[in-house]
Simulated assay, not measured.
Amino acid sequence: MLKDEDLLLRCALPKERNLLWRQIFLDNEWKALDAPYTPLEYQSRLYFRMNLFKRLRDGETALVIEYQGQLVGYLSCYWEDQSTRWLEVGITLFESQNWGKQLGRRALKLWISHLFKKYELARIGLTTWSGNPRMMRCAEAMGLTLEGRLRKVRFYQGKYFDSLRYGVLREEWFSQVSKRVLAEVS
């Protein structure tokens, strides 16, 4: 469990399975900004329980985000290439009422700090697209560096967008992140 005031990152509870499934596959307002050019593949409740929900329950590669006692999203990480220790992070905040409150920034700071402490990594990455300016501002405000821009590779609603790769090195992260955040993940 990772905590920053009224924000908590934790494992999912069994009773939250249906709520999470609904937020991800039915009430998916979040998908409008989270790679909308890639169709969301519907998962049955059983498949969800055996895959993403299992990850959220285990807490190794995904955690739910609770804000003021409400489940508002989740964080994840995945190996782009485990043999070279290339780890990527992702975040989903379900509803627009929670966007623009810096919840994503606060949650990602805890998550990235936790992952750097957990794994022997030189770098952590985050990929987004130019159609998500909030995620771009979030990454930049957290000190992630824009390392790559693949121009016009995302086609959505009749327009081309760029794919953006951000990253932060371990030494950069620990030199800039607040001691309070580091204390929270110890």
Rank of each mutant, 00 (worst) to 15 (best):
Ser44Met: 09
Val185Pro: 04
Asp6His: 10
Leu2Trp: 03
Leu182Val: 15
Ile112Gln: 10
Leu52Ala: 03
Val177Gln: 08
Arg165Trp: 13
Glu171Ser: 10
Lys15Ser: 01
Lys15Tyr: 00
Glu95Ser: 08
Val89Ile: 14
Asn18Asp: 03
Trp111Pro: 03
Ser76Met: 09
Tyr47His: 14
Gln157His: 10
Lys117Val: 13
Gln102Trp: 02
Glu5Val: 09
Lys31Gly: 05
Ser130Pro: 11
Asn132Trp: 06
Cys11Leu: 01
Leu182Arg: 14
Ile112Pro: 08
Lys117Leu: 15
Ser186Ala: 12
Leu126Arg: 13
Arg57Cys: 12
Ser186His: 11
Trp173His: 13
Trp21Thr: 00
Gly69Met: 08
Gln82Trp: 05
Asn28Gly: 03
Leu93Asp: 06
Val72Thr: 08
Asp34Cys: 08
Leu33Lys: 08
Gln102Arg: 10
Gln157Ile: 05
Arg85His: 03
Thr128Met: 12
Ser96Cys: 06
His114Pro: 05
Leu71Glu: 02
Asp27Tyr: 12
Ser76Lys: 07
Glu184Gln: 15
Leu150Thr: 07
Gly158His: 12
Lys159Leu: 14
Ile91Gly: 00
Arg22Lys: 10
Arg137Phe: 12
Arg85Thr: 03
Tyr160Pro: 10
Ser163Pro: 06
Leu115Asn: 11
Asp58Gly: 05
Arg149Asn: 11
Arg123Leu: 11
Leu87Thr: 06
Glu140Met: 11
Trp79Pro: 11
Asn132Ser: 09
Gly104Tyr: 01
Glu95Phe: 09
Arg137Thr: 10
Lys152His: 14
Cys77His: 14
Arg151Lys: 14
Leu33Glu: 05
Phe161Val: 14
Tyr74Leu: 03
Lys118Trp: 07
Gly69Phe: 08
Pro133Leu: 07
Met136Glu: 14
Ala35Pro: 04
Ala35Cys: 07
Val72Pro: 01
Ala141Phe: 04
Leu87Met: 10
Ala107Asp: 01
Ser163Met: 15
Leu52Asp: 01
Val153Glu: 15
Val181Met: 13
Asp58Thr: 05
Gly143Trp: 06
Phe155Arg: 13
Pro36Met: 04
Asp162Asn: 15
Gln176Glu: 07
Ser175Gly: 05
Leu56Trp: 00
Glu120His: 15
Thr128Ser: 12
His114Cys: 10
Leu126Gln: 08
Leu182Ser: 13
Leu103Thr: 02
Asn28Arg: 12
Leu20Gly: 00
Leu169Ile: 08
Arg151Trp: 11
Leu110Arg: 07
Leu46Glu: 12
Ala32Pro: 00
Gln176Leu: 07
Leu144Thr: 04
Thr61Trp: 08
Leu19Asn: 01
Thr84Trp: 04
Met1His: 01
Gln157Tyr: 01
Gln82Glu: 15
